[in-house]
Design a protein around this nucleic acid. Structure first.
Lengths: 225, 225
DNA sequence: AAAACGATTGTTGTGCACATCATGGGTCAG
DNA sequence: CTGACCCATGATGTGCACAACAATCGTTTT
């Protein structure tokens, strides 16, 4: 998907993306402790370069290290999550207004692939594959804006929130089948808007779905906690 | 101003804030190379903890390290800067809409101090003191929203752009005296709006001034480059 | 028995020596 | 004179040993 440069920098980016994906896909659950030594051994490097990755992830709000205690995957409470979601709503709409561009051929292919995978999930719902598809689709939508800072910030906030959403799915707080059905409609609606060439409409649809997703999650979380 | 915790974490945050301020105030100019060893010696630590700070700053887009070459302060071209500014416009307005709160007593005192310092700059213009005041005022305005993610992102973008603006001042691309006069009116207008209790109006004024500031800088930069 | 204290263990943080890489200058062949 | 090549130099990146720190468990004392 994303080719990485050789040398030290490439390895850094590779490790960074790998661990970030594991956090977002709940291979590392919120609150879980990560062992620097174990990770270093797994990737065949010493603690030094690995720590560099962990420092970066801490800066992105995904990890938190405490001297003498451990490195933990961050967890967020519902009110902090709500703030992030409200901000994501506005940023999603901005994606359709700031430096928005129409998808090119390779991007259309990606979208087609996403639509296919989305439909296949209807017959065989799987939380992890769903989360991966959700991430892929979001990152593809981010390519609709050429505003690099907006892209970076939107992705950063996405990585912070998506794992909480996935956590709700795993905990059966929200219904996986319903989420898959809704997601299918989201993909369909957004692609329809893009085919017509209405970038702002596509962004508004995405915004609406982010909002509704949070709403479902919130009511689900409030059910028994 | 901001108290730092003792121990390793406090030292890290202290170093981070110190170097970030130096970059934003152009003690370290864009494109300049930083010596890890020199910085480590200056702060009385080894390269290891210092490098942790540099990695963080690189993640914030203020530094860029190249293996075997050096660590450099990032520079940005005018079009990338324009993207950042357009995003900052929107975020400034959001500050007045998302979790906006009225200033409390301590914040009012800060604003009063800023107004005083701003007026004193009229008689004795100084680029560095101006930049410091500009930063203090911006950070104070950020306290008008309780939305923590919005705060973090706005500050991040501010730190990326303000040094370019200051660079224009130093290079006499834009007139310092005019900037001071305009800034005085900005502070006055925003505080007036805050006294009336209209947070959204204050945010709109800030947005307008960010926009005009970029316009002045852009025409100034285009003058002979 | 309960509470306070201290040793032990395991973790992250630090310092230092060395590896790796890119650059510039000097040298030698053509 | 010109070009390529090599090596010296100085930078960041890495590995390892140890320090600092926090939690836990066992011991001791009241």
């Amino acid at each position: 998907m994303t080719e990485t440069a050789p040398g030290a920098r490439g390895r850094f980016e590779r490790l960074h993306a790998t661990i970030r994906t594991r956090i977002c896909l709940l291979d590392y659950a919120p609150g879980m402790r990560l062992s620097e030594e174990a990770l270093a051994n797994e990737f065949g490097v010493s603690r030094t370069p690995l720590r560099r990755v962990l420092v970066r992830l801490e800066g992105e709000g995904l990890l938190h290290s405490v001297h003498g205690v451990g490195t933990f995957v961050t967890d967020v409470n519902i009110e902090a999550l709500e703030q992030t979601y409200r901000l994501r709503l506005e940023l999603a709409e901005l994606t359709g207004k700031l430096d928005a561009v129409h998808p090119d051929a390779p991007l259309w292919e990606k979208f087609q692939d996403h639509a296919d995978r989305s439909r296949s999930l209807l017959n065989d719902p799987d939380p992890r594959r769903f989360a991966q598809l959700n991430m892929d689709f979001f990152l593809a939508l981010m390519q609709l804006t050429l505003n690099e800072p907006l892209r970076q910030i939107s992705e950063r906030l996405y990585f912070q929130t998506t794992r909480i959403w996935l956590k709700s799915v795993f905990a059966s707080k929200i219904d996986l089948v319903e989420e898959v059905i809704v997601f299918n409609r989201e993909v369909e609606d957004i692609l329809t808007a893009l085919r017509v060439g209405d970038l702002h409409a596509a962004a508004l649809i995405q915004r609406a779905h982010i909002s509704m997703s949070f709403h479902r999650m919130r009511t689900g979380l409030g059910a028994d906690e």
